[in-house]
C-alpha cells in the first residue's frame, strides 16, 4: 500500500530535536583517542635507520642530514596519507601518531616538519623551535 508523506512524523521529530550537524568551526566533532592523525618524530629515540622512509607509501618522509652521523626523517604533511605505517615500521618507537587533524595551512612550507639540527650523535642540542 503506497501513500504520500510517509516521512512526516520523522520530519516533526527532527524539527523538534537538536540538529545532527554542528556549526563548524565554532564547534567540532571530537575524534576517538587513537585516531590516526599527524605523525610526529621523537628525535631522541630515532636511530636514523630509515625504515620509516622505506615503507612510507606516500613518499612523505625524507631522510635529511642534521649534522649527526646518520640522517633523520623529515615529514611532509602535504604528502602524508596518515596511514601510520611509519610508526609501525619504526623499531625504536621514535614516531608517535597524534590525534591532530586540523592541518590546513596557507603554504606548502608550513606543512613540513624538519628534524632539528644535532651537533654530535646521541647528544641532541637545545631544541630549536620545531617548525610545523
Amino acid at each position: 500500500m503506497s501513500r504520500i508523506g510517509k516521512v512526516i512524523p520523522e520530519l516533526f521529530k527532527s524539527l523538534t530535536s537538536a540538529p545532527a550537524t554542528v556549526d563548524f568551526p565554532k564547534s567540532a566533532v571530537p575524534v576517538p583517542p587513537d585516531y590516526r592523525g599527524k605523525p610526529v618524530l621523537i628525535q631522541e629515540k630515532c636511530t636514523g635507520c630509515g625504515l620509516c622512509q622505506r615503507d612510507c607509501p606516500a613518499a612523505a618522509i625524507e631522510m635529511v642530514d642534521v649534522g649527526a652521523k646518520r640522517p633523520k626523517p623529515a615529514f611532509d604533511y602535504g604528502r602524508c596519507a596518515f596511514c601510520a605505517q611509519c610508526a609501525e615500521s619504526c623499531r625504536s618507537d621514535a614516531i608517535v601518531i597524534t590525534g591532530e587533524h586540523h592541518l590546513a595551512a596557507f603554504s606548502r612550507e608550513a606543512l613540513r616538519a624538519a628534524p632539528r639540527p644535532e651537533k654530535k650523535e646521541e647528544e641532541p642540542q637545545e631544541p630549536a623551535a620545531e617548525q610545523e
Partner: peptide, 23 residues
C-alpha cells in the same frame, strides 16, 4: 564513527596488513 573507533579513520581504514590486521 564505529569504523573510526576501530581503525583510526573514517575511510581508508588501513586495518589490513600482509599476514593479518593491525589493530
Amino acid at each position: 564513527d564505529l569504523l573510526e573507533l576501530i581503525t583510526g579513520n573514517r575511510v581508508n581504514y588501513a586495518i589490513n596488513t600482509i599476514g593479518g590486521v593491525r589493530r
